[in-house]
Design a protein around this nucleic acid. Structure first.
Lengths: 224, 224
DNA sequence: GTCTATAAAGGGATAGAC
DNA sequence: GTCTATCCCTTTATAGAC
């Protein structure tokens, strides 16, 4: 069956999302997929190639949709003026919630997997980067920059960094942080995005406080 | 040498920070430590026990300092009033920057390792939780809650979740996100904290927009 | 405490029958 | 396309000499 390939992709997705690349053995994955161990090498030729395939088939459509939404935001914005921050953030986030509702897919698992991608060793991201992830990142950085012209380049770099960290963390950890997520349903990605957009915008817009009186050099003083 | 134990702890810290628990073999670790493979089992009896030891010796002092700083914030705040959000966030973050400057330690590596802790399988966190991490988390959740009384419990839960995600992500990823961190030095933890505090505070304070309606402050066309 | 040697299990990959 | 059987390597852990 060619359906074996699909079952393998889904099983690998699940395992990678939960335990990462190194933590997921091919034996685990084939057991979950109810497939034979040798099927992995038949369909993908190696574990690493399967990893790339698993990631790419989810990230590809996501980047397309992001690009499309961002173009919409640009088209609607007044020429020359700053881009609307909320809209840019939505274009960054909503595709995650929208692209993965095809039959049987779990947006929670997929977004967790994508969030995890950035905790993996760099060599596991090179191929994904080459296929468009890096470029999409730069595109969004530029859009955010246009939405936040008031900051110095250095301040913007920090804000962009924190923004990506919050976004990736919120995706990677949803549904699996005991003690952190009492009754709320972090696996409802639409809801997550709805709350995350204002959080990011608030953090991004917050000005840096004026530098206060010189800090104590290292740690002893408690004169607050 | 008893110094072997120390070299092992540092080497393990480095490896766990870079590649995670499953990605770090005892062979890797003992090679970095210039120690014999069998030394791990002699000093720690198992890889998992060493993991707990590596984490605990860094997290323990961190939690103590957090507790101390938070007590200071409470003592300085007017009774009954809300706690000052910036101070609470600083008590959450500054200890990471301050506790690890003892001879030879790298705050960048240590904070990366701590940030990674939350991407590891849950069983690797149970012992650390039991030794105070969970309780410290609850303590800070309560303090943040007192600093943000204006939100509903549900909204606060989301904000707290995002706050922790941004914090852990910023720690875990510093120094190793190519393309994301152009010229800035994310391994300067003091500087990271100085920028992260306003980002978190801005995100935490930002009110939720009215549901499914154009934002009240700006009559803007909504395209959903 | 440290070392060599090795056990015992698990990992990715492959050959070849069907 | 799928399966069994197996190769060969790495992993964690341990035994026992020094």
């Amino acid at each position: 069956m060619a359906a074996t390939r699909e079952r393998l992709l889904r099983a690998a997705e699940l395992c990678f999302a939960e335990r990462g690349y190194e933590g997921s053995s091919l034996r685990d994955i084939t057991r979950v997929a109810k497939a034979n161990l040798a099927a992995v090498n038949y369909h993908f030729s190696s574990k690493q190639d399967m990893w790339v395939e698993v990631m790419q088939r989810r990230i590809g459509p996501l980047l397309l949709e992001r690009h499309r939404m961002l173009a919409e935001v640009r088209a609607a914005a007044p020429r020359g003026g700053p881009l609307p921050l909320e809209k840019v953030c939505e274009a960054l986030l909503l595709p995650v919630a929208r692209v993965y509702y095809a039959g049987g897919d779990s947006p929670a698992v997929i977004s967790r997997m994508i969030g995890r991608l950035f905790s993996e060793p760099n060599f596991l991201r090179q191929e994904i980067d080459r296929r468009g992830l890096s470029q999409s990142g730069r595109e969004f950085r530029a859009a955010l920059r246009e939405a936040l012209p008031e900051f110095s380049e250095k301040e913007f770099k920090w804000k962009f960094y924190f923004c990506i960290c919050a976004l990736l963390g919120a995706l990677a950890r949803q549904g699996r942080q005991p003690g952190l997520q009492g009754s709320m349903d972090t696996s409802d990605i639409e809801e997550l995005v709805r709350h995350l957009v204002p959080f990011l915008c608030g953090g991004l817009r917050e000005p840096m406080p004026a530098k206060r009186a010189p800090r104590p050099t290292r740690g002893k003083k408690s004169s607050k």
